[in-house]
Write a protein that binds this DNA or RNA. Structure first.
Length: 185
DNA sequence: GGAACGATCTGC
DNA sequence: CAGATCGTTCCC
């Protein structure tokens, strides 16, 4: 498992630290290769208007899973970070499949792009809205975040965030350089 | 009570 | 490149 204190910093600090960590749901495991940071003072963040029924798990303790429905269609998965009540999160944008690839492919209707997108990775790992609020650091949870000893990249690829219309300029998107990926594609 | 707008993906 | 598709939020 992961030490919770790693997630208790602010989102732009924590986000790149989550690169190369493992996300596990049952037999399906993926390595996190792309993330984005969202903070409560950020116009693009769901938490910018304070706590609401939808975003309330974003305000819970670091390591809580925040799931929401995007475009009325796709589920997106975030990890709540920072202190309790802050409303900060890291959006998980892409995984490299590590284990359970056949299962992922079946969930992805036979496609080969298994988890290279926030909606796709939730489909591949079968993360659903009902998983909103699970503690990713509790061994009893169905979905978990763990560290297998692969460190985050020293020089992640930094970019701007995607799919938002406000606060586009913030360089709050981090990726593992495709040439430095640890897992099979 | 209603309308606008998405932290996206797919297929045309 | 536009359509799908529906919950959330805000405004009337």
């Amino acid at each position: 498992m992961l030490d919770r204190s790693l997630l208790e910093g602010d989102a732009p600090t924590v986000a790149p630290q989550l690169l190369n960590k493992l996300l596990t749901h049952g037999g399906t495991i993926g390595r996190i290769v792309e993330v984005e940071a969202y903070t409560p003072d950020d116009p693009a963040s769901h938490s910018v208007r304070g706590r609401t029924p939808r975003n309330s798990t974003m305000f819970e303790q670091a390591g809580t899973l925040y799931c929401y429905l995007s475009y009325g269609v796709h589920v997106c998965a975030n990890v709540a970070v920072d202190a309790v009540g802050t409303g900060a999160a890291v959006l998980l944008r892409a995984l490299d499949p590590v284990h359970g690839i056949e299962e992922m492919r079946a969930r992805r209707a036979g496609r080969h792009d298994l988890a290279d997108g926030p909606g796709k990775l939730c489909q591949a790992l079968d993360i659903r809205l009902e998983h909103d609020g699970v503690d990713l650091l509790d061994p009893a949870s169905p979905i978990g975040l763990s560290d297998d000893g692969v460190p985050p990249p020293k020089t992640p690829v930094v970019g701007t965030r995607i799919g938002i219309s406000v606060a586009r300029g913030r360089p709050w998107r981090w990726r593992v350089d495709p040439a430095q990926r640890q897992s099979i594609q």
